[in-house]
Nucleic acid binder design. Sequence first.
DNA 1: CAAAAATATGGAGGTAATCTCCACTTGTCA
DNA 2: TGACAAGTGGAGATTACCTCCATATTTTTG
Lengths: 192, 192
Amino acid sequence: MTAGKPLRADAQRKREALLATAREVFETGDFFDLRFDDFARLAGVGTGTLYRHFPTREALAEAVYRGEVATLCDRARHLQATLPAAEALATFLRDVVDHTAAHKGLARTLATLMADRSGALAEGSRALEQAVTDLVATAVRDGTVRDDVDAGAVMMALHGIGAAHDRPAWRAEADGVITLVLAGLRRPRSDG
Amino acid sequence: MTAGKPLRADAQRKREALLATAREVFETGDFFDLRFDDFARLAGVGTGTLYRHFPTREALAEAVYRGEVATLCDRARHLQATLPAAEALATFLRDVVDHTAAHKGLARTLATLMADRSGALAEGSRALEQAVTDLVATAVRDGTVRDDVDAGAVMMALHGIGAAHDRPAWRAEADGVITLVLAGLRRPRSDG
DNA sequence: CAAAAATATGGAGGTAATCTCCACTTGTCA
DNA sequence: TGACAAGTGGAGATTACCTCCATATTTTTG
């Protein structure tokens, strides 16, 4: 599906250049101050070429986002294979926050673009969602996590962390959300 | 501050018309498919008038948002005055979800606009944040809620609920987030 | 109540970003 | 190496945004 047609050599190169430049500009936060045409020039590419590879700003973002998500998914798989379920889940959620904090600009830009009604990025995060779902399911199965709350709720909380990028106390609050989610996920005692 | 100059009668009328139309169009979700100029016409107002009242889409959204927030804040005050702290907090959070669900289109549109890096709406939600902070603080004071997590974390979770508007299982997941947050907020037992 | 002063209106048109189109260049395959 | 396919760049059409001001409405004043 992803590889319908084997790209020609130069096309591949331009595409890479666009992605590399995108990552840079996303990170510095200048993406929205830049005319899309100028972005093309910045990447050393003609306008037409830019538009053929990535018809919209969102399409470009999606490609970058996919890379980020892939990294996180690898991490999830690794944790799942080496730690007890509950611990794997906890570590992963904290790692997501770490990762986001380490690439704040990128996360900002992606979150902003993601909000555009296109929903283009929803597609890209499917893999991430699957990873979280697996981690939660495993922890539920071994009894460390309650089974009456969907993994989607955890995704939603993560979404909040990403979307609320402009809060002054972002880091502390993000940690707080994770703490709440993890505490909330613990199998509740039989008392009300 | 809000009432620096008493608006002229016709100006008041036009302003109202713009806000009313905005609420409609926000709710139906057509706001982004509409040229801003056409929006003016739709409200029966000239382009210039639109721009004088609301210089940007965000400014318009902010005005609408303020109304929503005010409603919720009234609710918060009422709950705080009539229920035990923990219950007031729980009820309020669930009410926010109900309210959002009842005005899904509006919430969608506002969330999308809020994500624009402008941060214009951050201002509008200050009151909401204050309400949540008060509710949490009261519950902390009477010992039903842990004191090591900031109210900002709760805001962040709410933010996630609003921002993740396009998830198919939105309602169930939103309820899940609230459940997790409330469970997570309970003063943890002395065991690890 | 009439006229003057202040305030607000609408939409034509300037400005600026987006995106398309195609004559030309580069890569691939036999 | 030649012929065909695939890709490129950027000029210019298109579209949306926003400003400006001659005109209209409201309010105040004498």
